[in-house]
């Protein structure tokens, strides 16, 4: 198969980017999209040119590294898969394929198609965890969790932090990501003690990182490689309201670090 690739090239965060056209010839339909780019890069390297930078690692749709907007859709034309699970037989012979990076203020471009998704990590660091020390955990069966609840938590927890929801959203909002993370822990009894603080902290962190706000357009759900439902966004909205109304927090200021006084 033959294609024309229109690839976004940009040397670094502050620099101007532009599209460069590359022909892709004799592409096997059995190749994955990223293998097709591998081959292009091999050719560029042998010509002494710098290859197109893009991210990938596991190449089986779970690590969340790969992040290409292909013909205007994050992760490309197939539903429920990451870029690395996309195969060339999916494309029509002879067409032009436009490849762009995730575009969002919160995801500055590092090079070409590689963006810095550290904002998602920082959102998680703001409270996307259960503060539980290693050791001394009670037996796993002490707190029973019904199957349905466990499965719902698992639905939310299947997020691979690829950032496609941000890339797809008209407002570059990370709402589906935040909602999935908050819902996962809010659904489990172990996450209950920090439920309110977590919801508020993650919300603030999302704003701080420069993501937009949710427009309830559900484009995120449609491109999510794990098909995470916008149901979790509504659940997170409830979670946030509940946190604000029912658990406004103690009246006295508490130190954010309980270990501070021992230092």
């Amino acid at each position: 198969m033959n294609f024309t690739l229109k690839v976004w090239r940009q040397r670094g965060a502050g620099e101007r980017g532009r599209f460069v056209i590359y022909p892709a010839r004799d592409v096997s339909p059995a190749m994955s999209f990223l293998e097709m780019l591998d081959v292009l890069n091999q050719q560029l390297v042998l010509k002494g040119q710098e290859p197109v930078a893009f991210e990938s690692d596991c190449r089986e749709g779970i690590c969340g590294s790969c992040s290409l907007v292909i013909n205007g859709i994050p992760h490309g034309p197939d539903r429920g898969v990451a870029t690395c699970q996309l195969y060339m037989r999916r494309f029509t012979e002879g067409t032009t394929i436009t490849i762009e990076p995730w575009r969002a203020k919160a995801f500055p471009i590092i090079r070409d198609l590689v963006v810095d998704r550290g904002a998602l990590d920082r959102v998680m660091q703001a409270g996307g965890y259960i503060s539980s020390n290693t050791g001394g955990a009670v037996d796993g069966n002490t707190i029973l969790i019904g199957k349905d609840r466990a499965e719902s938590a698992m639905d939310a927890a299947s997020c691979i932090s690829c950032g496609a929801c941000v890339a797809a959203c008209k407002n570059a909002s990370a709402m589906l990501f935040v909602a999935a993370k908050v819902s996962h822990l809010a659904l489990l009894p172990q996450g209950e003690p920090e439920r309110a603080t977590r919801a508020k902290a993650l919300m603030k962190a999302m704003d701080r990182e420069g993501f937009g706000s949710c427009g309830n357009q559900y484009e995120c759900e449609a491109v999510c490689p794990k098909s995470i439902s916008v149901h979790f966004i509504a659940a997170f909205n409830r979670e946030f309201l509940r946190a604000t109304v029912a658990e406004p927090g103690p009246l006295t200021e508490i130190p954010s670090d309980p270990h501070a006084e021992f230092r």
Partner: peptide, 22 residues
């Protein structure tokens, strides 16, 4: 055995039986 307890405490959504056990 401790690993499972630790992971449950951290919010790992292990598969459960209908009665709520792991």
């Amino acid at each position: 055995t401790q690993i499972i307890d630790q992971c449950v405490a951290l919010g790992v959504p292990f598969a459960r039986e209908y009665g709520g056990q792991l």
